[in-house]
């Protein structure tokens, strides 16, 4: 459209100047609408995932490959952090419990903390940082370099091949990683207990198992499935819908971690509420 500069400001121009900038912006540009557009887009992406996941052909080989990359390759990081969490929690809790003469409750307290809350949440956050950002950056870079288009031209459904496999792998592998992380965390706690005492492994672990109930294990396990799903889905969503250009890759990786971490806390909050409803 041709731009014209008139010497006298028009009536509409004068009216526009008196309206605050935030009100004169088009409705679609407001942060409020952007938020709802993003939610709608993520909902449609999730719906597409559920449609594609049941529709053959199934990408079993790619699912196995992604499970190896997402699960097995995350094991050292998850293992080390799990051990440190168990060890540090034990060392930090000992003086407080000792004040009340409740030092013998240390294994039970650490076990309940690790299995119910700290293990799943911290492992999920580390997983979001490693896997969520990895998926986001990988898919965004594939988008930028036209690899996703190339896949489509090769008569391959890129959503099924790239997104469905990654989301499923994250959903399957995170609960397994959290179980391993919890076990390693308890081992770290055993080491922590024995730094300033002499507790046999039999006594330590029998105290742990006595203190844990079905109500501690099952809700904690179920929420990890949702954590894995949310991290895989958000990483894939951010990468698959990234803007073209290298800036888009960085933004996709960054927002995947931020958004996935936030979702972990939201899911955890909801899970705690639901669990307490049943326990009461």
């Amino acid at each position: 459209m041709e731009n014209t500069i008139s010497e006298q400001p028009s009536e509409e121009h004068l009216q526009a100047e008196t309206i605050p900038e935030s009100f004169s912006e088009p409705i679609s540009d407001t942060a409020f609408n952007k938020f709802f557009l993003e939610v709608a887009s993520l909902t449609s992406f999730t719906w597409r995932f559920f449609k594609e996941v049941v529709k053959p052909p199934y990408e079993i080989n790619e699912l196995m490959k992604q499970s190896f990359l997402i699960g097995y390759k995350s094991l050292p990081l998850i293992g080390i952090t799990g051990f440190i969490i168990g060890l540090v929690l034990t060392i930090q809790s000992r003086p407080t419990l000792a004040k009340f003469g409740a030092e013998s409750w240390l294994p039970a307290m650490v076990a309940v903390s690790i299995i119910r809350e700290i293990g799943p949440v911290i492992t999920a956050l580390i997983f979001a940082g490693k896997v969520g950002s990895g998926i986001g950056a990988e898919l965004a870079s594939m988008n930028v370099t036209e690899q996703i288009d190339a896949m489509q031209v090769s008569c391959t459904n890129p959503f099924k091949y790239l997104v469905v496999t990654r989301v499923l792998s994250a959903t399957i592998m995170l609960p397994i990683l959290i179980i391993l992380s919890d076990a390693i965390g308890l081992l770290g706690s055993f080491v922590g207990v024995n730094l300033k005492g002499n507790v046999s492994s039999y006594l330590f672990f029998s105290q742990i198992f006595q203190s844990l109930s079905f109500g501690d294990l099952v809700p904690a396990f179920i929420k990890t499935i949702f954590f894995g799903f949310a991290i895989g889905l958000i990483g894939s969503y951010k990468g698959y819908n990234s803007y073209k250009g290298t800036e888009g890759v960085g933004k996709a990786a960054n927002s995947a971690v931020v958004f996935a971490s936030l979702m972990v806390f939201i899911i955890d909050m909801v899970a705690v509420q639901i669990t307490s409803l049943f326990q009461n």
């Binding site: 370099t145 690899q147 008569c155």
Partner: peptide, 26 residues
């Protein structure tokens, strides 16, 4: 067939796997 401006090679695959990909799919 489509030759993309950036060639659009799959970074996570070797040259052999890049060429095998369309064969396996089609």
């Amino acid at each position: 067939g489509f030759l993309f401006q950036s060639a659009a090679l799959y970074d996570s695959m070797t040259v052999r796997e890049n060429l095998e990909f369309p064969l396996r799919r089609q």
